[in-house]
């Protein structure tokens, strides 16, 4: 991979929260990169640290949250070291975010069109009349029928699917290099989800915008991603190109996740389940975090495995895989 292609590189990110019950180590040693125009998915179960990772990149953590360690390089600049003023420029212009519930990020008393127009006027030197046309074009682009009507609607009058389209249009309005979409279709019906995912795929291809898609659904990953990052209990446990993840998963957790997902287009006589639950960040086992639930655990797993590259672009955090490689050599 050419170094110059890398758009975002997160290295050894560590984010903690200080709560009355103590320190919550939500993200521990997370590293990954996104190339220009690439579609990368972070997949993991509830509480694995997906949202905290994305909020860390945007520097939108709540007051109790703090990036303890690591670096986040975007277009050559370390976002962690930027002033709040410079960071605001990045947020508006270069990285945009789309959340699961768009209502919370839209102004309820301003029409949809006006909100997107304001965003355009703020980030681009353009006349009001042009900006309006741009908004209509954007609404068209995200598949909104009768965009003039939606332009003058208030957010709460739109359906969930329409609101999510508006959010994507809003994200696009600043012509970002990266869109971070945190569970953008989780609250939607499959029919609407399929529409939104097609739009995201189209956009990334036409506008060359990179997409970091956060989801707990391997189906969504299979539909969209070029590359996949699997997170478990605050850590990246596996990272590879999409086909490697689906055809040659290496980490026991990735395998188990694939086997416990019900599938429409395969016969499954038995659905394998992973016993136990994800450890809460306050009671994370020392050593491998998947230890309690892993079918392959052994003595060595009581020590923490590191994320190691096993083949070109395929990284795994597991002693078993490491040993298999050592034996082969």
């Amino acid at each position: 991979m050419k170094e110059s292609e890398v758009l975002l590189e997160v290295k050894n990110l560590k984010t903690h929260f200080n709560t009355i019950n103590g320190v919550v180590p939500s993200v521990e040693d997370v590293s990954f990169y996104i190339n220009k125009g690439e579609k990368v998915a972070i997949v993991g179960e509830s509480g694995s640290g997906k949202s905290v990772t994305s909020l860390s990149i945007m520097r939108l953590l709540s007051e109790t949250g703090k990036i303890i360690d690591g670096s986040i390089h975007f277009c050559g600049r370390n976002l962690i070291e930027l002033s709040e003023k410079d960071m605001r420029k990045i947020r508006g212009n270069e990285i945009a975010m789309v959340f699961q519930e768009p209502l919370s990020s839209l102004n309820p008393v301003m029409t949809v069109g006006k909100q997107i127009m304001e965003s355009i006027l703020l980030h681009q030197k353009t006349r009001k009349q042009n900006a309006k046309q741009q908004v209509i074009d954007l609404l068209n682009k995200v598949g909104i029928p009768r965009p003039e009507k939606v332009f003058s609607s208030y957010p709460h009058l739109l359906s969930g699917g329409m609101r999510q389209r508006v959010m994507i249009a809003m994200a696009l309005s600043c012509q970002p290099k990266l869109i971070i979409a945190d569970e953008p279709t989780t609250a939607l019906d499959v029919t609407i989800q399929a529409q939104i995912l097609s739009i995201l795929k189209e956009l990334s291809e036409q506008e060359e915008v990179a997409i970091l898609l956060i989801t707990h659904d391997l189906g969504v990953v299979a539909e969209v991603a070029d590359r996949v990052i699997v997170m478990y209990a605050g850590q990246v446990v596996e990272q590879a190109e999409i086909f490697s993840i689906f055809d040659y998963p290496k980490h026991p957790y990735t395998k188990a996740l694939l086997n416990s997902t019900p599938k429409l287009d395969f016969s499954q006589t038995e659905l394998l389940s992973i016993e136990g639950t994800v450890p809460s960040p306050m009671e994370i086992p020392t050593g491998c975090r998947f230890y309690d639930r892993c079918d392959f655990s052994s003595e060595i797993c009581k020590q923490s495995p590191e994320l190691k590259e096993i083949t070109d672009g395929h990284q795994v955090r597991c002693w078993l895989v490491e040993e298999a490689i050592d034996n082969r050599i």
């Binding site: 097609s198 689906f246 429409l264 287009d265």
Partner: peptide, 25 residues
């Protein structure tokens, strides 16, 4: 079309039936 809207279970099956997916709400 409802069935075609369900995400595929493997990337090889991606976008086989884009046109069969349901439009509108």
């Amino acid at each position: 079309s409802l069935l075609y809207s369900v995400p595929v279970s493997h990337p090889k099956l991606r976008s086989n039936h884009e046109q069969s997916k349901l439009t509108g709400e």
